[in-house]
Design a protein around this nucleic acid. Structure first.
Lengths: 205, 205
DNA sequence: CTTTGTGGTATACATTTGTTCACCTATATT
DNA sequence: AATATAGGTGAACAAATGTATACCACAAAG
């Protein structure tokens, strides 16, 4: 990647910060204003230079500065699900808070999403409140799998056991008791395939 | 959060996909064009509705549709460290097995690396053999931090406690005893900032 | 029955924004 | 000395974009 002048790198930094805060990039004139450049063409030259050097891309109309992000093909963008709204499918836009990149090896399969854990139902297997779960959406799970079950519109993490006519959803926490539910009274949203713990208390979003 | 009509949710989805691909949001007219709506005001009404319901925000000029609480994390490549070779700095090329992409929010800071856990010294806090640790390289750690300590060239995970002239490295496992080491007999390679558990037994490499 | 929300067409207009051109000043390179 | 790159000013213009208004139709809620 070609090197940038001090000024160019200041301007790239501003564009990134602005985009991150607002969700859309600055206009040429806004860049000029921020750096006290009195003419739009002054700012435009910097943007042109950054495009030429491969740091930015441009579209046609107004305010179309894009950041050139070239992900390797091993990167997969995975949606992060917020509060699950009752009745709405878990992967509906209403539930998606954002997307984060994960390596393919952590997110193999088609319908992968991430959920934030609330509650202490699985502390005995190292899944604590605030942790993030990588979940593969699937209806059929196997004996003993850790699953996301939706009961009364609420998403819960439990270990799955099948009985003859019912299903046992067992919390991995000595202080909590397993729940026995009939088929039809719950939905399996998917299987937990990995757990991400943020030890410094940070949130992904 | 208020529910969306089918149409509104289609349009929100389009705006997110467009923004994710281009780095800037679509214009009102581009939305109209995509959905074969023949008048810009037709599309504008949908955007207005999405703003009113709290899913979008707007700025002043052209192409200023912002996404309320929608985040796209950027990618950071993080090296995965294999067996730590005695005497060689942990981040030396000899120790690096490969790199995986992680979101910035999981890998904040300069010198981040990933280690695979071997052994059961931290099972009581949910860190099991085979898990991956995201570690920030730093010499100074605080009371109670989970750290990577190098003793006799071997990397081990322990909880760190400082005494007057020694340091206690405590395994979080009821069956194991804390080790007391003198300053100089060990090295702090870094602090564990997050844990990744692969439940299906897969390896990152 | 009236109101509200949804979803749309059509037209006109104001504003923002991008772009170009001419010209200026440095600094570094050939 | 000539040339390229970086950084900038100023004015004029073209294009893209947002907005307002009027009007239509349908469905749900009061």
């Amino acid at each position: 990647m070609k090197t940038l002048t001090k000024r160019q790198s200041e301007i790239l930094k501003f564009i990134r910060e602005y985009s991150s805060i607002n969700g859309y990039p600055p206009s040429i004139r806004e860049i000029a204003k921020h750096f006290f450049i009195k003419s739009p063409s002054g700012a435009k030259k910097h943007v042109d230079a950054l495009v030429k050097k491969g740091y930015l891309s441009r579209g046609r109309g107004a305010r179309t500065i894009g950041e050139e992000r070239f992900y390797m093909d091993s990167v997969k963008m995975v949606p992060v699900i917020g509060k699950v709204a009752a009745g709405i499918p878990i992967l509906a836009v209403e539930n998606i808070m954002g997307e984060i990149p994960l390596p393919e090896s952590m997110a193999e399969g088609k319908e992968i999403f991430i959920l934030r854990v609330e509650g202490d139902s699985m502390t005995d297997v190292g899944i604590d409140s605030g942790d993030y779960l990588v979940v593969r959406q699937q209806q059929t799970v196997e004996q003993g799998d850790i699953v996301i079950a939706i009961i009364d519109g609420d998403a819960t993490v439990k270990r799955f056991f099948k009985r003859e006519n019912t299903v046992i959803l067992k919390p991995e926490n000595k202080n909590m008791n397993p729940i026995e539910v009939k088929k039809g009274d719950f939905l399996i949203a998917g299987k937990v395939i990995s757990v991400i713990k943020m030890l410094e208390g940070k949130k992904i979003f």
